[in-house]
Each structure stands twice: as structure tokens, then as C-alpha cells.
Design a protein around this nucleic acid. Structure first.
Length: 463
DNA sequence: TGAAATGTTGGGGCG
DNA sequence: ACGCCCCAACATTTC
């Protein structure tokens, strides 16, 4: 009986897994594998938090596969060539990935492996190369991308069922623990307690979100202390649940509960994820270089380790910024509204290059995703496609008052401020007795805003 | 998926 | 009664 290899990558699930289904339908025995391929990732080797998540997610997947998941580490091409030779496998199935380095690597493998490779769409709702404007160039603005490019095409396919019985085969390989994904200093333990990692947890999370937080999503998703965001991002990144599943399950729920408005907004957020991947696919330098070329001359401040560290550790003296940075440190996640505020502070108040923030998020976020992270940072910095205009500068006090009106989010993550009343919790320097153990604000926002606008003038008129 | 500065309007206090 | 000022509330413009 011939053998099919199913190469799991960013699709660590059994439900709605087209590569796995195709392998099943082939009637062959199935060898499921995972390869940790750091060498080919270049500068974008997985960050610390991502590795922790991966460790647990692989364990969960392996359990679903009755312990049959074979583990390898090293150059994927070398490993696959040897594996095919050793096992006599006759076909490889995988679901497509979209980071530039993975595309290049997979393309190379396809041409060198010498046997049939079947690849599938599983991580995106629309393939980036299919969504083009009439002139065959990629969209650079979200709304037409989504409304004309995506919505006017076919609706995303319905998710596939989990295969009932998989004809698994086992080989000896490394174990997941050999991958050394957990840190030596165990900072990860409290972080993972906030999550249920793995396919089961991902499906549970979607269900809980629909029950507890979907109604009022449109409005509530901006308020970090509320339950109105899905928190699916790490699960989606690792493919523990597919975007198709999220799209259709939310739709079913929304139609049954008359929540069409919230559905539109939730779908639109899934589409922002599509848009980020679309941009990265068509503009592979997105993680390194400003999308708008004139920003190459932007007068960023010199590297300043002291300021950068205060931002990283949540010691800027601006409560909403510090709360976000500490939420990130403690949970591997930050609410989206707060990401925008904290990111804006780094690039506009501190005038430090967005790439510094991108690197920190890459290392700390459980949902660290090359496309989303790069597109998000460029958006905030004002140098991205369809970006916020540079002069749109967030005021951390105003944003805090608007989106955390009771200060509940700030009090949760910055306990030094918990005793302040609502009038002072967003601007503790105004308190009659400022908190003793909280840093004074590291910049004057009004002055920092002026400096940022000054800096903008230097590039405004260049092409 | 901003905020601040500037402009406009209209009600009320007051001489 | 009337004009004037003040200023909150809202709208528009600018960065």
C-alpha cells in the first residue's frame, strides 16, 4: 500500500483541513509530519512567544493524531528528500503558506522532490494572486479590495468535516520536546494560563465568543475591558481553526440571532487579515521597508535603548500605553485598540522607527504573524498601503478616556494606578498626590505631537 | 480605525 | 427692548 505524507505547517488542525482530507480520499496510508525549519526563515525566525504556542499546539495535534505526528528539525527540503527515500512515499499533501520565504522554499521543494505534490488553500479565504483590479495590479486600499475584490467574487467555501478515520502510519522521529521550543527561564507558564492552546481550544474560543461577545461586536470591539473581541488571532495564525470556519460559524450564529451588523464587522476584520496577506504577497518587502517610498527619508530618532525599553516594559508613564504593553508581556496578546495606541506612541511620540516595535511584537505576541504585524505597524506609522494619514496622532489620554472610561483595563494591568479615581487614572500626573511607584510621563504629548508634525514636513513634498 | 485649532451659532446675563 | 459679550455646543478646517 502506498504512502502519503501530510506536511502540517500553519494548519495545526483536523477540521477543515483540505490537505488531510485529500490524503484520506487518496486511500493511501497517511504519515503526518511537522518540520521546524528555522534556517530558511532568515530574519523572521519564529519569536519567543510563538515558539511556546507552537510547542503546546503540536502536542495537541499529536494527541488528535493518536501520537503519530512525526517531528523533524532542519532544512525542509533536505528532510523531505530523505524522508521520501526512506519511506517510499508517493505523494505529499500540504496546505499553502504565504510568507515570502515559505513560498520560495516550497516552490523549490516542489521542483526538486521528484514526486507529486498536492497543495491546497486552507489559511486564506481568497488567494492573493486572484484578487486584482481590472488593470491586473493588486489593490492598495482596503475597502475596494474587500467590497469589489473579495465580496463580489464567490463567498468563501464551507469548511470541510474532520476526517472520520485516518489510516495513520508511524515512523521513529524526534519528539516535540526535542524541538526545544520552551524558554530556559520559564516565563511562559503564566502566559499560557490565559489560553486554551490547540484545535479544541480554538473551536471553544469561537463558540464562547459567539455566545458572550458577538452581540455588540461593532461597537464593543473598541473597548479593551469588554468581552467583544474574538481573541482568535493566535489560533488563526497557527491554523488551529480556519478562517472559513470562523466566517461561516459566525454567519450561522448571526443569522439565527439577527446580528447582521455585527456579522458585517466581524467579516470585515477577517478581511483585514486577508488584506495584510494580500499586501505581503504582492509587496514582499513589507516587513522591512516602508510601503510608501518617501518614508525612506523620514527623520526617525536614533536608536535609544532607554526609551525603547521603557516602552517595551510598560513604563512610559502613559497609563493606557503601559497597560497594553504589560498585557502583552503577561498574556502574549494585546487588545487591538490598545495596539494602535501603544504603537502610535512609539512611532509618533517617541519618533522611533516602526521596525523596532514590529520586532518586539514579533517576539512577544502569541499571534505574531508576518503579514498582520508588518501591515499593522505600517498602518500606524502612516507609511503603509491605505494607512492612517501621518498627522493622525493618537492622544493617549483622550483614547484612554474614550475607550476605557472607567479605567478598568488600566487598573487591571497597572496596579500602581488602581487607587486613583476616574478623573486621574488616565493622567496620573494631574493627581493631587501622584502615585509614588509609577513613572512620570516620559514625554509631553503636545510637544511630541508638534515634533512629529515637524518631522512629517521633511518628507511631505517628496515623491 | 484623530486631535487640535478655528469658525459659527444661539441662548442667557447684563447694562 | 436692545445690543453686547460670553461661552457652550456644534461644525469646519488644518495638521
Amino acid at each position: 500500500m502506498s504512502l502519503a505524507i501530510v506536511w502540517f505547517r500553519q494548519d495545526l488542525r483536523l477540521h477543515d483541513n483540505p490537505a488531510l482530507c485529500a490524503a484520506m480520499e487518496s486511500g493511501m496510508k497517511v504519515l503526518p509530519i511537522y518540520i521546524l525549519d528555522d534556517g530558511n526563515a532568515g530574519a523572521w525566525k519564529m519569536g519567543g512567544a510563538s515558539r511556546v504556542w507552537l510547542h503546546h499546539s503540536l502536542h495537541a495535534l499529536n494527541e488528535s493524531l493518536e501520537g503519530a505526528l512525526a517531528i523533524f528539525t532542519g532544512d525542509a527540503e533536505t528532510i523531505l528528500l530523505k524522508l521520501v527515500q526512506d519511506t517510499g512515499a508517493s505523494v505529499i499533501f500540504w496546505n499553502r503558506c504565504y510568507e515570502p520565504w515559505r513560498i520560495a522554499r516550497d516552490k523549490k521543494i516542489k521542483s526538486s522532490i521528484g514526486l507529486h505534490v498536492a497543495t491546497f488553500q486552507a489559511s486564506l479565504l481568497w488567494e492573493p494572486w486572484k484578487i486584482l483590479k481590472a488593470d491586473q495590479t493588486p489593490y492598495k486600499v482596503f475597502t475596494p479590495f474587500y467590497r469589489k475584490g473579495c465580496l463580489l467574487r464567490d463567498e468563501p467555501r464551507a469548511p470541510l468535516d474532520r476526517p472520520k478515520k485516518i489510516n495513520l502510519t508511524r515512523i521513529t522521529s524526534q519528539s516535540i520536546n526535542d524541538l526545544d521550543l520552551l524558554p530556559n527561564i520559564r516565563w511562559d507558564k503564566n502566559m499560557v494560563a490565559h489560553w486554551q492552546i490547540g484545535e479544541q481550544g480554538a473551536r471553544q474560543r469561537l463558540g464562547d465568543f459567539l455566545e458572550d461577545g458577538f452581540a455588540g461586536y461593532k461597537e464593543g470591539r473598541n473597548y479593551p475591558q469588554r468581552n467583544n473581541v474574538s481573541r482568535l488571532s493566535p489560533h488563526l495564525h497557527f491554523g488551529e481553526i480556519s478562517p472559513h470556519e470562523a466566517w461561516h460559524t459566525a454567519k450561522r450564529y448571526a443569522l439565527a440571532h439577527r446580528k447582521e451588523q455585527d456579522l458585517d464587522n466581524f467579516h470585515s476584520e477577517l478581511a483585514w487579515r486577508e488584506f495584510s496577506h494580500h499586501l505581503l504577497y504582492h509587496f514582499p518587502h513589507l516587513p522591512e521597508k516602508p510601503f510608501q517610498e518617501k518614508f525612506a527619508d523620514f527623520p526617525w530618532r536614533e536608536y535609544d535603548g532607554e526609551s525603547l525599553n521603557r516602552w517595551r516594559k510598560g513604563l512610559t508613564g502613559f497609563p493606557i500605553v503601559d497597560a497594553g504593553m504589560r498585557e502583552l508581556w503577561a498574556t502574549g496578546y494585546m487588545h487591538n485598540r490598545v495596539r494602535m495606541i501603544a504603537a502610535s506612541f512609539l512611532v509618533k511620540d517617541l519618533l522611533l522607527p516602526w521596525q523596532y516595535g514590529e520586532e518586539w511584537f514579533w517576539d512577544c505576541l502569541f499571534d505574531a504573524d508576518l503579514a498582520n504585524n508588518a501591515a499593522g505597524w505600517q498602518w500606524v506609522a502612516g507609511c503603509g498601503a491605505d494607512a492612517a494619514p501621518y498627522f493622525r496622532i493618537f492622544n493617549p489620554v483622550t483614547q484612554g478616556e474614550k475607550f476605557d472610561p472607567t479605567g478598568a483595563y488600566i487598573r487591571r494591568w497597572v496596579p500602581e494606578l488602581a487607587h486613583l479615581d476616574n478623573a486621574d487614572v488616565h493622567a496620573p500626573w494631574n493627581a493631587v498626590t501622584p502615585p509614588a511607584h509609577y513613572p512620570h510621563r516620559m514625554v509631553d504629548h503636545a510637544a511630541a505631537r508638534q515634533a512629529a508634525l515637524e518631522a512629517l514636513k521633511k518628507i511631505k513634498n517628496s515623491a
